[in-house]
Lab assay of single mutants.
Amino acid sequence: GTVKVQGITIKVPNPDKAYKIAKKLAKKYNLTVTRKGNTIKVE
């Protein structure tokens, strides 16, 4: 899958794990995490 952070896309082998990490970071930096299948977008 991929993770998008402010325009940066990161390929990740485990979208579930990445999503959990993204959620933690999002809370810390007051961002929104959206997930569509293997693509995770943080904005």
Rank of each mutant, 00 (worst) to 15 (best):
E43H: 11
I8K: 06
N30S: 07
G1S: 07
D16R: 09
G7Q: 06
K27C: 08
V5D: 03
E43A: 10
K4M: 14
I40F: 10
I21S: 02
V5F: 15
V3I: 12
D16A: 07
V5W: 15
I21A: 06
D16F: 12
T9Y: 11
I40N: 03
T2L: 13
G1T: 06
V42W: 03
V12F: 09
A22F: 15
V42R: 01
T2P: 05
I40C: 14
K11Y: 14
G1V: 10
A18H: 01
I40L: 07
A26P: 00
V5I: 14
T32M: 10
V33E: 00
K41Y: 15
V5R: 06
T2Q: 10
I8P: 01
E43F: 14
I21P: 00
I40E: 01
K28V: 12
V5C: 15
K11R: 13
N30D: 04
P13H: 11
N30P: 04
E43I: 12
T9V: 10
T32P: 00
K27E: 08
T39G: 03
K28R: 11
L31V: 08
V42Y: 04
G1H: 07
I10D: 02
I8D: 01
P13E: 09
I10K: 03
L31R: 01
I21N: 02
L31F: 11
K4E: 14
K20M: 13
I10M: 06
K36M: 13
I40R: 01
V5Q: 05
V42M: 05
V12N: 02
K28A: 10
K36A: 09
K17Q: 12
K4W: 14
L25M: 06
G7K: 07
I8A: 03
T34C: 12
I10A: 04
K41F: 15
V3M: 08
V42H: 03
K23H: 05
E43M: 11
A18L: 12
A22H: 01
A22C: 13
K24T: 08
P13I: 12
K36I: 14
K24H: 10
Y19F: 09
Y29G: 01
K4H: 13
T32H: 07
R35W: 10
K17G: 04
K36C: 14
